[in-house]
Amino acid sequence: MPETYLIAYDGSAASDRALSFGAARARASEARLLLAHVLEWSPYSFLSAEEVAERHKRRNDEVGRAKTVILDPVRKRLTNEGLSVETVVRYGHVAEVLGDLAKEFAATQIIVGRTGEKGLQARLFGSVAGTLAQVAPVPCTIVP
């Protein structure tokens, strides 16, 4: 049974660094890669009547875009390089969802990029990497 590395990937520079770090390790240990794109979402935000009516359509659009634009190109590239890659799109609180995914797919470690937020924003909202370090159910690598 090969190991599974869960990599948070949203197409940003930070997530690219996490990806190349993870891919290099996966090549060495013949591990499987699981690329997760998590869209920030709270079930307790407020929507207008019209937004409620359009929500399902929007969600389909968002998931479709995440797949075709962000995840699929990377998967193709890595598969061509001989790696075994799976992708998944989810909604929710990013750090929590990554933790849940790690359990669901029996991942052996989580790899995320660090965005390097500083100052007020990081103090107020925390960062994905910081939260994940606290809640991750498996070892977690934060790539600078």
């Binding site: 869209l39 979402w41 079930p43 307790y44 929500r55 969600r59 989810r90 909604y91 929710g92």
Partner: peptide, 11 residues
């Protein structure tokens, strides 16, 4: 949780 992103009962 898999339905996250759809309209929640609260919304």
């Amino acid at each position: 949780p898999r339905d996250a992103g759809e309209v929640s009962p609260f919304q």
